[in-house]
Write a protein that binds this DNA or RNA. Sequence first.
DNA 1: CATGAATGAGCCTTCATTCAT
DNA 2: AATGAATGAAGGCTCATTCAT
Lengths: 192, 192, 192, 192
Amino acid sequence: MTTAPMRKDAARNWERIVAVARQLVDEGTPLQLNDVARRAQLGVGTVYRHFPTAEALLETVANPCLETLAAHGEQALTDDDPGRALTDFLIRTIEAQVTEAALSTVTAAPTDALPRTTELKQTLRSVGGQLLERARDAGVVRADLTSEDLVPLMCGIAYAANVHSVPAARVETAHRYLTALLEGLCIRKGPT
Amino acid sequence: MTTAPMRKDAARNWERIVAVARQLVDEGTPLQLNDVARRAQLGVGTVYRHFPTAEALLETVANPCLETLAAHGEQALTDDDPGRALTDFLIRTIEAQVTEAALSTVTAAPTDALPRTTELKQTLRSVGGQLLERARDAGVVRADLTSEDLVPLMCGIAYAANVHSVPAARVETAHRYLTALLEGLCIRKGPT
Amino acid sequence: MTTAPMRKDAARNWERIVAVARQLVDEGTPLQLNDVARRAQLGVGTVYRHFPTAEALLETVANPCLETLAAHGEQALTDDDPGRALTDFLIRTIEAQVTEAALSTVTAAPTDALPRTTELKQTLRSVGGQLLERARDAGVVRADLTSEDLVPLMCGIAYAANVHSVPAARVETAHRYLTALLEGLCIRKGPT
Amino acid sequence: MTTAPMRKDAARNWERIVAVARQLVDEGTPLQLNDVARRAQLGVGTVYRHFPTAEALLETVANPCLETLAAHGEQALTDDDPGRALTDFLIRTIEAQVTEAALSTVTAAPTDALPRTTELKQTLRSVGGQLLERARDAGVVRADLTSEDLVPLMCGIAYAANVHSVPAARVETAHRYLTALLEGLCIRKGPT
DNA sequence: CATGAATGAGCCTTCATTCAT
DNA sequence: AATGAATGAAGGCTCATTCAT
């Protein structure tokens, strides 16, 4: 059961709306449907027809990212090295979070507007959980973390990077923070 | 030069307002001065007289915590063990962050309403920086983090704990996350 | 390039708003957009959509008068008799000022909300200046007044008429005051 | 029946309040009793005790001027030259109006807060009326103006001077406008 | 008398959402 | 379908006035 195909002009409007919304989110402007409509040179009604709420629109902006992350996650599950698999996944995740402004909001939200979003978040949690489990089974990851912790931790790292004073350095900062988290703030003597 | 002492009734109202505000913040309600006034059974004007903006009120709620943290930080500077000093400081910090809801907002805010808040945040950053430096000099902490990173990281941990689904477990979760950050997600073979 | 034509209902509301505003101004009530909305039986938002500020609305009420005055002024420039031309212009001006309450406020305001208002005031000043200059060149008007003085003087006369106790006699009073100004309070012996 | 003598400190406060009010009026700030209290370093209550309304305070600021004007007026009545007497009176009047900001408001107000103000305004109107009448009887002033017109005309001249763009030139402008009014805008051939 | 804290009506403005065109 | 005008609840803030201390 696929959704009925959209009329050509409707599709064009849809794209316009999403594009404008992404732009707004990126520049930190709070997402208001009236505002989106104005910038997209469309009537408010049109925007409401396509997206019943601002959250729905925001999720629509964020979902491609989530799709990509999920795909990469599934891919990572096939990796032989459980440690690398998890690490890669985490790196991609925070990169996405600090790159796409919409993502952090959507990921941290306790409730979703679109079913698809819920699915994606579920998938991501599940994939993350599996990657974590494997790594733990391989003894390369501490045992006191569950799959429930992965998303919060990634959100936290991304948030930390955003709080940091210099916006231009966000990606680099996020990397540094992730590395710190992976390797630990404290230094222990390595194996001889 | 201390501020003139407040009249008894005014002081009572002041307390009432701050108490109501703390309660609101704790239950996650966005802080609105009108709302505070209503709940405190006071005229709006009274609230505005004491706190010109919602931010000022929020900071007033948060500042005692900041004071305490700063005091503990200064104390920690006298600790012989640089590693323990830093760790203790960090533990207290995230504990405060997840316990007092007002704190995380204030800490993450790029700009302050009250001068005292700015002072406190500055002190905290400075103390944290010194603790970090000592620990680094003692070789117990990784070298790629600066004093600029401490606050963001603590905010991130607290945020992560808040994102985590179960609110009741927040303190415990925050502890776990901090430990993970300190020791590292990844396990490395310790010295024989 | 003309402005897009207004929708029929919107136009009706626009008219209603302006009508109510004119009425309020006429009865001396300070112009408040909420008040206008209530009396026009419209939502506040509607009023704000049409007129972003009370000043904009006030100028919209006043501008037709200004347009008329400007037109008459241009007309007066074609008159052969420079004295009569100026006098006619001045008479029309104060008549308008005491008739349309909105006018005096707008004319005396140092700054405008609508570009059109600025244009009109500029035109009026310019036309008045030319009429004055011609009359002066013809030797029928005292030499110590510049085009900068015309508007203030007219505002002054209108104000004087409004201050006068009997409101019903305003037009007549204004006429009398203008005549006094033109001919002089003091009587001098005419030519033999 | 004189008013009970004021206590020394009360008198000092009274002075302070009036001084602050005059200052506020002069700088164009709208007169608010709270504001006055703050600037005078007094409680609001104190200000209210002395002046029940802002209008009363404003009139208190303006009245010395009115007193002076009235005195000069009475004086002028003794002048032999009726024309000069009137002219002098008018000159003083507009000078006062443009010099003391409080005056124009009080003079133009249709109703007064203090009985003394009403008395003074009445005196002024009466004196002006008499001066006008004498001048008219001497044939040096046009006949179509009554004593009711003098105050409005002076208010108008002052208002005109205030509307004029350059504030620094107000006194000079007012003089010019008064002269124009006295001698007439239009030039007529003098006696051979 | 003096004080200044408290009051709350009232104005301003925004924005999510609906619905006539 | 698309449009965008209309709505009005809701929140922000000020300020004249009162009254407990």
